[in-house]
Every structure is written in C-alpha cells, then in structure tokens.
C-alpha cells in the first residue's frame, strides 16, 4: 500500500491560511490503513487546525469528509457538494489523490495535507517499512523475493557491498542488510546458484527516470 505521514500543524496552517472555509478530505483506502488520512485522522487534524487557527486569530471554518478513494471518479463525485461549498480542499490522500481532485476541480485550490512516503507494508503496530520502489521492471524473482533496489541503501543488483556489519547495513545501522537477507533467503529455498549470475545494468527507463509512466490496456478500453 501507499504509506504517508501527516504534515505538521504549523505547515498546514501556513498552506491554508489565506482561506476561510476549508474542506479536509480524507481517503478511505491506503492512507486509512497507514493511519495518516482516514476518517479518524481527518477528525484529529481538523480539530488541530481549528485549535491552531483560533490561537492564531484566524477565522477558519473546517469541514470534514472522507470518501472511499480519492483516486477514483465514482468516489470523488460523492465529495462534489462539499468541495463546491468550500474555498479550498486540504486533501489527506496520497499524492495521486490530491492530483485526482485538483484535476477535476480546475478552479478550486487543492492542497496536500500529507507527505506521501513510499510503497510499503505494516511491519508491526505503528511501524511501516518500504518494500517497493515501483521501478517498473521487477527483479524480485532473482533475489528470493527481497528487493535490492528498495531495501539495499546502495541499490546494488550485484551485492553485497562488503560494508555490512553482522547483518546490519553500513549506511543505516538500524536497518537490515538487504543482501544478507537475500543470501539467507536464497539459501533457504535452495537457489544460491542465482547469486553466481552477474546482473547487467538495470534499464531505468521503466522507472520514474524515464518520465511519468502510463499504462494503456486496449482490451479494457471502451
């Protein structure tokens, strides 16, 4: 899922201070699961904004709404009335959600209330970790299901770098060395042979480096 984190209150106030009526719009999908932009976070951030605006003497009115998905027309339509009656939207969706709303409301300022961080999973209560860099050309099959592009700090496809201490990364000692994990995993599944292969340089055109990506499925187009 997409993992995001809220911006701090002073930054949010700075973003929205010129408006009087703000819609804080949550998203019921990824950012709900990562506790950043769901119904509950909308309520908490709205309360904080009301408190902060009163303390600063701003006359801010905050409306709250959460829709199922901000990146989907069907659900965006459900927010139409609320978006229209407010001066601006503070979206607690991911970057895709913010842009989806902004593209559909040409004359309405739409701001991001979250910092979208990464594609990851819930590791344990309150801890999310990055697992995928969306590089566009998956190599997980070569590495026992552990992604060196994302989880090795040096993105080495032919690792390890030799700098790890025990099983810790030398760049971030609080993180596991991805190559230690890859070795262990390939050993466990009897595929250590894979490490003998020299991986050629990756074609980064499939990643964001090749520009914004588009997928077209002709079989699904109408």
């Amino acid at each position: 899922m997409i993992v995001a984190e809220r911006k701090n209150v002073p930054e949010l106030i700075d973003i929205i201070k010129e408006h009087k009526n703000i819609l804080v719009l949550g998203c019921g999908t990824c950012v709900t699961v990562c506790l950043a932009g769901g119904e509950r976070e909308v309520s908490i951030i709205s309360s904080a904004l009301r408190i902060a605006s009163k303390v600063r003497g701003l006359d801010l009115k905050v409306e709250e709404l959460t829709i199922e998905r901000q990146c989907d027309n069907i659900f965006i339509e459900q927010a139409a009335d609320a978006i229209n009656r407010n001066d601006a939207v503070l979206s607690l969706g991911c970057g895709a959600g913010v842009q989806a709303i902004a593209e559909r409301y040409a004359n309405k300022p739409v701001y991001a209330g979250l910092n979208t961080k990464f594609l990851g999973i819930l590791e344990e209560h309150g801890i999310w970790t990055e697992k995928c860099a969306a590089c566009g050309a998956c190599v997980l099959h070569e590495y026992g299901g552990i992604c060196p592009v994302t989880r090795c700090a040096k993105h080495l496809l032919n690792g390890p770098c030799g700098g790890s201490r025990e099983d810790r990364c030398e760049v971030r000692p609080d993180r596991a060395c991805a190559w230690q994990l890859i070795y262990q995993r390939l050993k466990n599944i009897g595929q250590l042979e894979r490490l003998k292969k020299i991986e050629l340089p990756k074609d980064w055109n499939a990643s964001l480096s090749g520009g914004p990506r588009v997928i077209i499925r002709e079989d699904h187009r109408i």
């Binding site: 701090n8 904080a48 303390v55």
Partner: peptide, 8 residues
C-alpha cells in the same frame, strides 16, 4: 505533541 504544534 499535537497541542504544542497547534499553539496550546
């Protein structure tokens, strides 16, 4: 923490 950020 949230209150401190908000100014209370």
């Amino acid at each position: 923490e949230l209150l401190a950020e908000s100014g209370l």
